[in-house]
């Protein structure tokens, strides 16, 4: 779907599109955990990130990633990007921890 100039990929109100397919799925545990993560980070007592920042991060993913990623993939990509921007975590420690997590789960240590 090509948007007109100046219109972001997320800004789809009023554009032509096909029929609504009444799809639903039960969320996987990791998706629930992404949701929980966000609720904890926007909690009034913490305010580490805001809902608007989450949205700005999702809208900034670019057209390719926006359409390719699933809903909670977009969320965790945006949350992580914002946490790095704010210096809450570093790119480096994220990369190392992701490797460690993968190794642990896939038993390749």
């Amino acid at each position: 779907m090509t948007n007109e100039p100046g219109r972001g990929v997320h800004d789809m109100g009023g554009l032509p599109a096909g029929p609504v397919k009444p799809n639903e799925h039960d969320y996987a545990m990791w998706e629930r955990q992404v949701d929980a993560l966000m609720v904890l980070l926007i909690n009034k007592s913490r305010r580490v990130i805001t809902v608007d920042e989450l949205r700005r991060g999702i809208e900034g993913l670019g057209a390719g990633a926006y359409d390719r990623l699933s809903y909670y993939e977009r969320w965790i990509a945006s949350i992580t990007q914002i946490l790095i921007e704010k210096g809450v975590i570093t790119n480096d420690e994220l990369g190392r921890r992701m490797e460690a997590v993968k190794a642990r789960f896939e038993g390749t240590t």
Binding site: W30, Q33, V34, L37, L41, L69, Y72, E73, I76, A77, I79, T80, L83, V88, I89, E93, L94, R97, M98, A100, V101, K102, F105
Partner: peptide, 14 residues
């Protein structure tokens, strides 16, 4: 999955 690993890594770090 890549994003599943990201979720776990971010949660652990936080």
């Amino acid at each position: 999955d890549y994003y599943e690993a990201m979720q776990l890594a971010v949660a652990e770090l936080l």
